[in-house]
């Protein structure tokens, strides 16, 4: 087990113990929610795991590095940021996918752009966002998010 996984498991376990001491009924309810959401997300987790295997096993690595690597430059970052903005996959699943792209030769900037637009911008949730917040605020939030995602990605690329 990696140190990150150990840390996360200890953190979850301590929260669980504190919750159990404070309120048994609420803890039981929480665990029920946890089990339900685990099984709801499980199919897509397995899909992504198979997909990553096929991606890294079949797609030639120089294709990944050509479209999303250092040599793809700014255009590559914009391209993958747009893909992230349009795609609607659970954020939790995005990280193993991002890791596989990085392994396959994508640049740090491209991967950071992908994750940031994927989580911050929601094209599928946009209608609801407009309904609840109004057109102006919703469109501004998503539009400005795209610009800032690119800036974050470029700084990440320079730093790491």
């Amino acid at each position: 087990m990696s140190s990150a996984a150990i840390f996360v498991n200890i953190f979850a376990l301590s929260c669980l113990v504190i919750s159990l001491i404070k309120d048994r009924a609420k803890t039981k309810q929480s665990l029920l929610v946890a089990v339900k959401s685990f099984f709801r997300i499980l199919p897509i987790v397995l899909i992504i795991i198979i997909f990553i295997g096929l991606l890294l096993g079949f797609v030639p690595l120089d294709l990944i590095s050509k479209t999303m690597g250092e040599q793809a430059g700014f255009g590559g970052v914009i391209l993958i940021a747009s893909v992230g903005a349009i795609l609607h996959i659970p954020a939790l699943i995005a990280f193993p996918l991002a890791a596989s792209l990085l392994k396959g030769g994508a640049s740090v900037a491209a991967v950071a752009a992908f994750i940031t637009t994927l989580t911050m911008i929601g094209t599928v949730t946009l209608p609801l966002e407009i309904k609840e917040l109004g057109k102006k605020m919703a469109l501004l939030r998503n539009g400005v998010s795209f610009i800032f995602a690119i800036i974050i990605a470029l700084i990440m690329g320079m730093m790491l």
Partner: peptide, 19 residues
């Protein structure tokens, strides 16, 4: 890698959504 972290993450989400 997923299996060692996903159950813990789900438990955290369950706890906070109730509390």
């Amino acid at each position: 890698e997923m299996g060692t972290i996903l159950p813990a993450v789900m438990i955290l989400m369950g706890l906070f959504s109730v509390w």
